[in-house]
């Protein structure tokens, strides 16, 4: 197998691939067959090469071959998506939006009622807001345990996902669902399936911004 020859073949095909849209299906199938045949020959060549540097060169050709193949696959995927576009079901965007608005707004109103109550009791706003969050977390936890919150979620969509109740629901539902796998690997590990990423990226964002502010101070 001649390295330069192979390289030229790949370069030539690179040019042909630029005009992919003008090629007919038979030519594309032919190209896929050639790429497959070439790939196995290149893999054999790479495997039998004893010289380390030359092995790396062959490996690069192999990767180029794979890139060309994935280009063809991507092209086929786009064609297919075009074909199936008309069969995609309509998402009831307006209804979903209204329900998300109502449920999300409703949960926030509940929170506001709790805040207002504690302010009347003479608690400062910030602490009252904390109490409101806790109230909603506890309520959601109960509703999740009773198997009700998933129905609210099915109805409210993002309206029940975005408020802190969505966070509580994902924590409780994961813990509940995996209790049968035990206390440690079940509840203990799975409780953080969603809470973990939320806490991690929340902390990451606040620390990074905090550091920037600290340097600027």
């Amino acid at each position: 197998m001649n390295f330069i020859n192979q390289k030229n073949k790949l370069l030539e095909r690179e040019k042909a691939l630029a005009n992919l849209k003008t090629m007919d299906q038979a030519a594309i199938n032919q190209m896929i067959a050639t790429l497959k045949k070439e790939h196995q020959a290149l893999a054999y060549q790479e495997a039998s090469e004893k010289n380390n540097d030359r092995q790396k060169n062959w490996h690069q050709l192999l990767k180029q071959n794979e890139n060309q193949m994935s280009l063809l696959n991507q092209y086929a995927a786009v064609q297919y998506q075009r074909l199936v576009k008309s069969t995609a079901p309509k998402v009831p965007v307006l209804a979903n939006t209204l329900r998300a608005f109502a449920v999300g707004g409703g949960i926030c109103v509940l929170g506001q009622l709790v805040i207002n109550y504690w302010i009347l009791q003479g608690i400062e706003v910030k602490t009252a807001a904390g109490f409101a969050s806790v109230t909603i977390v506890v309520l959601t936890g109960l509703l999740t345990g009773l198997g009700i919150y998933d129905e609210i979620g099915r109805f409210g969509g993002a309206g029940s996902m975005v408020p802190i109740s969505g966070f509580a629901n994902s924590v409780v539902s994961a813990a509940l669902e995996f209790k049968r796998e035990g206390m440690v690997y079940g509840i203990g590990a799975k409780i953080f399936t969603v809470a973990g990423p939320v806490i991690l990226y929340g902390i990451l964002a606040s620390v990074v911004i905090g550091l920037i502010k600290f340097i600027m101070m």
Binding site: A88, P89, K90, V91, N96, T144, G147, Y149, D150, E151, I152, G153, R154, G156, G157, A158, S160, M161, G166, N169, S170, V172, S173, A174, L176, E177, F178
Partner: peptide
């Protein structure tokens, strides 16, 4: 529970 979400998680299922 294996392929998608915990059953008690409030998720809207896609139309598809």
């Amino acid at each position: 529970r294996q392929l998608r979400f915990p059953t008690e998680m409030g998720v809207q299922r896609a139309m598809t």
